[in-house]
Design a binder for these strands. Structure first.
Lengths: 367, 367
DNA sequence: AACTAGGATGGGAACGTTCCCATTTCATCG
DNA sequence: CGATGAAATGGGAACGTTCCCATCCTAGTT
């Protein structure tokens, strides 16, 4: 068994549920409450060494932590950043959240995560709640129309940043993938690998979001490139039959071509992988390319080719943006767009079986 | 394009960054601040209909939201629940977090998530911060020794609940899997499928945690069952070579037996799946069973058999526990243990190739 | 008509801290 | 020694709300 510096026996007695206040620390240290306040803020250097020592000692004895509620009240700062997430279980959201949370912590903020489960009523509720906590900034990773509550937050001066989402009549900073470059990279890669018939699948396209931008660019590429054909669909993934029908319909008219499926995000990749498996389809023979890297992609069949987003960097950039606006509240800079490039991770799902010289993935297990 | 009830043009002017106070609403509605306060608390029914209507109208006009900081100060309630997570990207943590967040929201609390990245210094920092926000309860999903900060929180009366973790000298409520039943179920299943040599792999075992309980029971089963042999290892997954060496060593002495690998959690399952793939091993020939269900498990080879945890229910039970203690602060009930049963999801990875009558997974793609 | 009880409404004090202005202390210089 | 300026220290008011006690009004009962 390990040893602890503060070992106590199993029936550890509980002291009274009491939290020390600044007045108590002041009394214990024989100083004024103002000095204690100074010690715990950014004015510690203005105190003498002796006083610092006495305060530190008293605070430790009393297990004192400043009450952030009281600080927020008088000081006007909550030290909270809100993050609105459409689905907390979405790997992309989680990965970005990780970057957001780290960037917040490094700058002394706490992250208040609100999960909407793609429900507008929950979103409104959460926004009201974030407003009541006086969050100092808000990262939004949710689709859908901007609600009245969101507009009110913006109107009250709360800095906002949208992840992977742009709204035509709502000015806010945006951080995300370069959608044009992403679709270009995907289609260039598929074309290079010999695929000439592409099905693009995405989750429902909200108004003026990046999903729509991707879709639009995909369709433009189809129109511009006579060697490429295909189709695009957006669908709610809960409707299992719909996805199967769309894929079946696409493949039924794909004879004489080299078909591939381009998935708009990780959720779609997962669903399509399941659907193709159910059909007994061989990855590569039917190309599969997913936007977003997932930890299991190289375990499935010959490996699934992906376009990876730098999710940590995206999360950090979002916080950086918010804090910049916080630091310069009088400067109403125009909305800022920060776009990142996707990175291609080549695996067997975009290598056609009759072109083995293009196949360089690792060896695969054979069940 | 959709239509909004509050459409504004793209250059929407920003009003001053001003938040309405209860005094302003009171003045606007021609009532006292006490009445406004009553309206936004649980005493709304004590107001006349006329007054309610006037207050509602004034609050809407001013976009008023109560200041939770001020409420927390006088009322003594933060309405916050903290959750300490060792790795926010761990699928188990995320899934449980979803249940926690939902249960909190349903009861009017907000969840403050703190990610420690398995770093004790970060944990201490987060705990201090949670203390400063006066969180009303804390869900802990992190391994490691209980720190002084954690003990101080408990001493101050903050209800705590541990997920999947028990500490011998620290009394707290615990919610998680029934570790004995889980190991029994796993070993019974493997034995039934014809495997007689089991390698149990887990992430590093903290003192008196459920990881240790599982390990202990695994070893006890080995000792009790003469038809079963095997070995157990705990290792940090960042050390890639170590895992490969352990698996190689296990398999090198497995001739004449039917070997299987039991993974202690989802992270281990993923790592082992990669390692087995790298070896060109066939799942089933070498059995693979993972504790925890992952969304991609049925995509890999013949499908990976798992023991699924009811993560949502675990998260909800944790919050239920905290709130019970909050509602009865004077009742120092003994620590409560809530244990759930795992559910076996049979797939091809625990079906030996020479026993095809036991193989009932769906057909597999062939690269 | 007088009294009583309940419902509705309101004002002042307090919550724990920060901020602002005031005071005290100390060191240096003339 | 006295004056000056800087550093160190401290007290009161304010932050936005809740809570507690007080007051007023109305309806019912005697």
């Amino acid at each position: 068994m390990g040893t602890f510096p503060f070992h106590r026996h199993a029936a550890m007695p509980r002291t009274t549920p009491h939290r020390a206040t600044i007045l108590q620390v002041a009394r214990e240290a024989g100083v004024s409450k103002t000095s204690v306040s100074r010690y715990f803020s950014d004015e510690r250097a203005r105190l003498s060494r002796d006083m610092q020592s006495r305060i530190a000692s008293a605070a430790r004895r009393l297990s004192y932590h400043p009450n952030q509620m009281a600080r927020g009240l008088k000081g006007g700062r909550s030290q909270l950043i809100g993050m609105l997430v459409a689905d907390i279980r979405n790997p992309f959201s989680v990965a970005v959240m990780h970057g957001v949370e780290q960037a917040c912590r490094e700058r002394g903020f706490s992250l208040l995560v609100c999960n909407t489960d793609n429900d507008p009523a929950q979103e409104r509720e959460h926004l009201a709640l974030l407003a009541s906590y006086r969050v100092e900034g808000l990262v939004i990773n949710a689709a859908g129309q901007p609600s009245r509550e969101l507009r009110a937050l913006a109107a009250q001066g709360t800095p906002l940043v949208l992840l992977d989402r742009m709204l035509s009549d709502f000015e806010a900073d945006v951080v995300g993938l370069d959608n044009t470059q992403t679709i270009d990279m995907a289609l260039d890669h598929l074309r290079q690998q010999g695929y000439d018939n592409v099905l693009y699948l995405s989750e429902p396209v909200a108004q003026a979001s990046s999903r729509q931008a991707r879709l639009k660019h995909f369709e433009q590429r189809l129109a511009d490139d006579p060697t490429l054909r295909g189709e695009a669909h957006s669908l709610a993934l809960a409707e299992d039959n719909r996805l199967q029908d769309v894929i079946a319909g696409f493949l039924s008219q794909a004879s004489g071509s080299a078909p591939a499926i381009l998935c708009g995000n990780g959720n779609v990749t997962l669903a399509v992988a399941h659907a193709l498996q159910a059909r007994g389809a061989r990855l590569g023979e039917i190309g599969l390319l997913g936007i977003d890297e997932l930890e299991w992609c190289n375990l499935v069949g010959p490996g699934i080719t992906t376009l990876a987003q730098p999710t940590d960097a995206i999360g950090r950039a979002a916080v950086h943006n918010l804090l910049q606006r916080l630091e310069e509240p009088q400067r109403q800079a125009p909305p800022k767009r920060t776009h990142y490039q996707a990175r291609l991770i080549l695996r067997g799902s975009t290598c056609r079986p009759n072109t083995p010289d293009q196949y360089d993935s690792v060896s695969q297990e054979r069940p």
